[in-house]
Design a protein around this nucleic acid. Structure first.
Lengths: 209, 209, 209, 209
DNA sequence: GCCTAACCGAGACGGTACGTCACGTCTTTTA
DNA sequence: TAAAAGACGTGACGTACCGTCTCGGTTAGGC
């Protein structure tokens, strides 16, 4: 669902010429192309996007109310799909979740899209809220579920705040992808983080057999 | 030390009227005042800063090459001083380091300065590098020292990558201050993180005495 | 015809919103108003003209490439229309031509427009060329025609360079309007100049009949 | 006498270091050099003059109150000296006077100094007045004397306004030097103008012998 | 032979205007 | 009615000069 989707849900009689979906795609892909070509985010004006996409400015403003709204949609389009969890254990599920983060970090660096747009989104409280609600929160809920299931199944100490635990898992990977991208994101990083943390977060005594 | 201070260390004959330090302070404090007054970072033009500080635009450009460079100095000025480490144990030192981060997060939210300017700095690789080198790296080196000392003193498993360990400590706090500021930063958070992580990172057996 | 009218004669499909002629008029009249109000020419910035006309700077620069080009159009707009020649004799035609010059001189002084803008235009070779070609040259051609017709009809010595003769007629009036405006431009001046000069320039003997 | 010579006539105790005349010359010649190098007058800023002359801005402002005052002195310095009149006849004197004008016109075109600075001076009423009083008026008085002597000696009709007569002589040359520099200033021009005009301005009957 | 006032270069200072660019809105024509 | 095109008022950009004001460092008299 688009932020720009202030269009009524019930299709409305649809008078006049309908909006072209091709144009919508052309705009979003125009933004991505520019970012991939190394254009700094600050140099990305609506005017330039319109020029690149071969589109009138009004056509953009008809869909998004400004630069930030547009970027949220770009961010969402580029976001990898939610990972499929194996469900074999809390540990395996966490590894898959972190591995998704890791791969996104890799993609960001290689494509130069995510890192900057993400940071830009962070600048605008309104936009960040939209991005948080539609992308981050669901994935976070997923992770919390996994952790709670871990507590129920005896894979995680029950006296631990699962929110804090999640912050630890995510935080370690976040530092690597956002704060210290130069440190690299080696292949086994997700497993290493999960195992290291679990080693300490597991109950001191094994659950009653 | 100022970013703008690329003036040679050996004073150089110092010809012409010297730059006024009062003006320099007025500019930086003008930026802070505006941010504290709730002006969105995007609305902070050089022109407006100049107007607020009662200063000519050229006087700003004489010291900083643009908005970002100026913000790095603002960031640096607002940065709390390096904490004094008790040195009683690795655990206590880490708590103090994380507590500093936590308090900065609190201050940021209350003053509205840090969060936005920090994010803005992150947008520009060049500026981020300057900030990273002059503020982040030293503090990180401090933390790594603490961790290595911990390994030597038997407070931390020796088979652990201290860099990864540091990412975990910092990351957990970072998620709370940057990504989820709404979750709050309760008083005992630093201790909770450190103890929780150490609980698992400590060696299974005490080092041979 | 406007200097700015480098737009092709054949209309070109005329895409996009057309330029507003009202805006064009507002700008030129804004300049005139300022000059009439006694603003020194040196204080006439594009910024001020835009402010006065209630117009964006870009709207001015879209039409004129700078201050001088704009002034040429102001000059042209304020220029009195070409006089209608009686055609009764060379002498009468010349009086009418000079009388036009005299009246322009009077208007210039009273309105404060012409004198300064004219001199300003003179400063820029490029602008002067444009003004010369579109305003001065046609009127000069007219005068040369009158003089040549005078030679043909026996009103002017045939051994005289008509260009030099014209310079004498025009020059006398020019000194009064530009160089010595304080000397005044009394009513009969045009006739006095023409008659005085003709008295000497006529052939000593009437042309052979 | 310099415009800048607001220094009191009675020397005043003259304490402190006296102003350097060498500096004064360097500034004026710096302006001339720039003009000769084809720098447009509009691009001649005080800052640039100071840079060229290797002089502080304050040193210029200490002597002249602004750009225009400086230019008047430049103009005066470049002005050719008053011609020496042969005194053999009004006609010969007038030829010499006009020849001076012609040569100044030639020099202007070749050196590119006079034309622009002259026009610039014309822009500022105050400056023009100073230039008019110190350069033009004396030469004009000289010419009027010559003409009056001509009337007395029977070389000029007595029913003619000598001021108007002078405007005719000067005007014809002025048109050639200022308004139509492309027409050229051929060698015999001064004589041609004087003779052509005199031919008509002389009394119809020769003075009583 | 100092003293000291004014000069000199350099350049910082608060300003104003430059000409360009992007903003978000608006009017055109064309489809 | 949507779409491309582009004009419109607004206002920030970074630069260049304006004329004034410090700076440190000469240069002359007058003591």
């Amino acid at each position: 669902m688009s932020l720009a989707a202030d269009r009524p849900a019930q299709p409305a009689p649809a008078r006049g010429r309908p909006r072209s979906e091709a144009v919508e795609r052309a705009i979003i892909e125009g933004v991505m192309k520019l970012l991939e070509d190394g254009v700094p985010l600050a140099d990305l004006s609506i005017e330039r996007v319109a020029r690149t996409a071969g589109v009138g400015k009004a056509t953009i403003y008809r869909r998004w109310s400004g630069k930030e709204e547009l970027f949220v949609d770009v961010l969402r389009t580029a976001e990898p799909p939610d990972p499929e969890l194996p469900g074999t254990s809390m540990r395996d599920d966490l590894v898959v979740l972190l591995e998704t983060l890791r791969r996104r970090g890799l993609a960001s660096r290689s494509s130069a899209i995510m890192h900057n747009v993400y940071v830009q989104a962070k600048c605008s409280p309104r936009i960040w809220a939209a991005y948080e609600a539609s992308v981050i929160a669901p994935r976070r809920a997923l992770a919390l579920d996994v952790l709670r299931r871990g507590q129920r199944d005896g894979e995680l100490r029950t006296d631990i705040d699962v929110e804090l635990a999640n912050d630890m898992f995510v935080g370690a990977m976040l530092v690597r992808t956002v704060l210290r991208p130069d440190a690299g994101l080696p292949e086994g990083l997700a497993e290493e983080i999960v195992d290291t943390l679990i080693a300490g977060l597991r109950p001191v005594r094994p659950p009653a057999q």
